[in-house]
């Protein structure tokens, strides 16, 4: 996290174009505390009053040492993830805890597998249900690019098309050791108050009625209600 790396502000607005966004990647390199941490207090008290900074640091330390994981199994990588939780690798040693079955009790979501079109909206929903601040570890090449299934007609080319990801752990599947390394890196980042900014991704959940009219929307107009949530995949724009 050197200071000589380019600084980019996190984007909070919906993109005009549906082209894939690289903002997350760029801004992840940005430094310092961002607004997912105590932004209300920060607003009230100004930039960095002494006591608040210390309290911030304390909070971050607490957060980093008690990360509640979401129990979230998708594909092959989840088997290695279970091995990471289980005997021998025992990720609990790092305060990373027994997995929580409910997203409302979880801080960290490990995305262990291939995201396909049908699951994308569900994953987004689960992510939205987690309380702030929340963090995501992308496990395996599938969450990076679609991995071995990158060319599939039904495969989302990386989980980052849908939700922001803090740490990528490459591998197919990554060994439990690698995942632990990733979790430790995340811990480090949380303790330093860093996180990837919330960027609106190319694939958003939107109300059907809000979509621009095109051939596809017209075709489906009879089947889908105006206010149903939909996710639109523009495969041609995918990386």
């Amino acid at each position: 996290m050197g200071s000589d790396e380019p600084e980019t502000q996190p984007r909070q607005a919906i993109h005009d174009s549906t082209a894939p966004s690289t903002d997350t990647r760029d801004s992840r390199i940005g430094e310092g505390v961002d607004d997912r941490f105590n932004s209300k207090l920060r607003e009230a008290f100004g930039a960095s009053p002494f006591i608040l900074t210390k309290f911030d640091e304390f909070m971050n330390w607490v957060r980093g040492n008690s990360m509640f994981m979401l129990q979230f199994g998708i594909a092959c990588c989840s088997i290695e993830m279970i091995h990471t939780y289980a005997i021998k690798h025992d990720v609990d040693r790092y305060g990373a805890g027994v997995p929580r079955a409910s997203p409302r009790q979880a801080d960290v979501m490990i995305v262990p597998g291939t995201i396909v079109s049908k699951f994308g909206p569900r994953m987004k929903r689960v992510y939205d249900q987690m309380p702030e601040p929340k963090f995501v570890v992308g496990m395996g090449s599938c969450t990076i690019s679609g991995g071995p299934f990158q060319e599939g007609y039904n495969v989302v080319k990386g989980a980052e098309e849908i939700i922001p990801i803090d740490i990528h752990v490459p591998g197919c599947p990554p060994r439990p050791e690698a995942l632990i390394y990733g979790i430790l890196k995340l811990q480090e980042r949380i303790q330093n108050g860093e996180s990837s900014p919330v960027v609106v991704k190319p694939y958003e959940l939107e109300e059907f009625g809000d979509l621009p009219e095109d051939e596809l929307v017209q075709k489906l107009a009879d089947e889908i209600d105006e206010d149903d949530l939909v996710m639109r995949y523009n495969w041609a724009d995918s990386p």
Binding site: P121, Y153, L216, Y233
Partner: peptide
């Protein structure tokens, strides 16, 4: 809500698709 049959030979993989959460 999928359009087309992906293993048929006239399927165009680049066409956009919509998936609902309803």
């Amino acid at each position: 809500t999928w359009q087309g049959h992906p293993l048929s030979d006239d399927y165009d993989q680049d066409k956009p698709q919509l998936v609902t959460l309803a």
